[in-house]
C-alpha cells in the first residue's frame, strides 16, 4: 500500500513538473506577445507619409490651445541608416579579417586569447562602449564628442568582436578537404582563403553581418553619449545626428501625447527593421544548412 502511494506521488510529480516547464514557456511568451501587440497597435496609428518625411512636431501639451500636428521621424530614420552603414563599413571588414585569422591561422595561446576576449567583449554592456568613445573624444577631439562619427565608432566597437566570432564560425564550417584540394593545385594559401574558403562561407559571413546590424540597430545607450540626437535632418559626420532609438527614449519620457505617439511609431519601425534583419539572417542560414544536407 505504501509503495503504491509513493509511485503515484512520483508519477504525479513527473506530470506536475512537465506542466510547470510548459507554463514557463507560456510565461515567456506573454511579454513577447504583449510587446508585439502594443507596439503594432499603438505604432500603426502614426505610420503614414508624414511620419516618414517630417521632423518632430511642436510638443502638444494637454489642455493647451494649440493645433496638434503629428510630425514624423524622417531625420531619425536617415540617422539610423547612416549610423548603421558607417559602423558596418568600419567594423565588418575588420571583424571579417580577424575572423579569418582565428579560423585559418588559429593555433596557439595568443589566438585562444583573441577568441576568448572577443567573446567576453560581446558580453560587455554597450553603455561601456559608448562611454569609451565618449571619453576618447573628450580627450582627443573635445569639439566632436556628439557627432555622427563618434556614434558610428561606438557601434563599430560593439560589432567588431561579434563579426569576428560569427565569421570565424562560418569559415570553420568549410570542410578542410576543399582547402587541401585547392592547396594541392598549387594555389597560395591567401588565394585559397580569399577565392575558395571565403566564397564557400559567404552565406555564413553575411548572416553574421546581418545579425550584428540587428544587434546594434536598436542600441540607444551608446548613442546617447556619442551621436547625441538632432531635431533636424543632418548627414554631416561632424555634427550630432538623430536616431530612431534616441527618438523612442526622448519622446517616451515626455508627457506630450503627440511625442509619445511618435515614440510608438518609431518603435514599430525599429522592431520591423530589426526583425527583418534577424529573419533574413535565419533564412540565409537555413538555406545553407539545407544545401549542406543535400550535398552530404
Amino acid at each position: 500500500m505504501i509503495r503504491f502511494g509513493r509511485d503515484v506521488r512520483r508519477r504525479l510529480k513527473d506530470r506536475v513538473m512537465a506542466v510547470l516547464a510548459l507554463a514557463c514557456v507560456a510565461l515567456a511568451l506573454i511579454p513577447l506577445g504583449s510587446i508585439v501587440y502594443t507596439v503594432v497597435v499603438r505604432g500603426a496609428s502614426v505610420v503614414n507619409p508624414e511620419f516618414f518625411t517630417q521632423i518632430q512636431p511642436i510638443p502638444c501639451s494637454p489642455g493647451a490651445n494649440l493645433t496638434c500636428t503629428q510630425g514624423g521621424i524622417g531625420n531619425a530614420i536617415v540617422g539610423t541608416f547612416l549610423l548603421l552603414g558607417l559602423s558596418s563599413a568600419i567594423a565588418i571588414p575588420l571583424g571579417l579579417l580577424a575572423g579569418i585569422y582565428l579560423a585559418e591561422y588559429g593555433k596557439g595561446p595568443l589566438v585562444f586569447a583573441v577568441r576568448f576576449f572577443a567573446d567576453v567583449m560581446t558580453g560587455l554592456p554597450s553603455i561601456v562602449m559608448g562611454l569609451f568613445i565618449f571619453a576618447t573624444f573628450q580627450l582627443a577631439f573635445p569639439g566632436f564628442v556628439f557627432s555622427a562619427i563618434a556614434g558610428a565608432l561606438a557601434l563599430a566597437v560593439i560589432i567588431i568582436p561579434f563579426v569576428a566570432r560569427t565569421s570565424e564560425e562560418a569559415l570553420r564550417l568549410v570542410p578542410g578537404s576543399i582547402r587541401e584540394a585547392a592547396l594541392a593545385l598549387g594555389v597560395p594559401k591567401y588565394r585559397v582563403t580569399v577565392r575558395v574558403v571565403l566564397s564557400s562561407a559567404r552565406e555564413g559571413i553575411v548572416t553574421g553581418a546581418l545579425l550584428a546590424m540587428a544587434r546594434v540597430g536598436g542600441e540607444t545607450a551608446p548613442l546617447l553619449l556619442t551621436a547625441g540626437g538632432n531635431s533636424f535632418y543632418s548627414v554631416r559626420l561632424d555634427q550630432p545626428i538623430a536616431a530612431m532609438s534616441l527618438v523612442i527614449y526622448n519622446f517616451a519620457t515626455t508627457p506630450y501625447a503627440n511625442w509619445n505617439a511618435l515614440a510608438w511609431g518609431a518603435a514599430l519601425l525599429l522592431v520591423v527593421i530589426m526583425l527583418g534583419l534577424s529573419i533574413a539572417a535565419r533564412f540565409l542560414l537555413r538555406h545553407r544548412f539545407h544545401e549542406q544536407r543535400i550535398r552530404g
Binding site: V39, E219, I248, A267, V271
Partner: peptide
C-alpha cells in the same frame, strides 16, 4: 527586441 522598446513597453 531593442532595449529601448522594452523600456517604452
Amino acid at each position: 527586441v531593442p532595449s529601448v522598446v522594452y523600456g517604452l513597453w
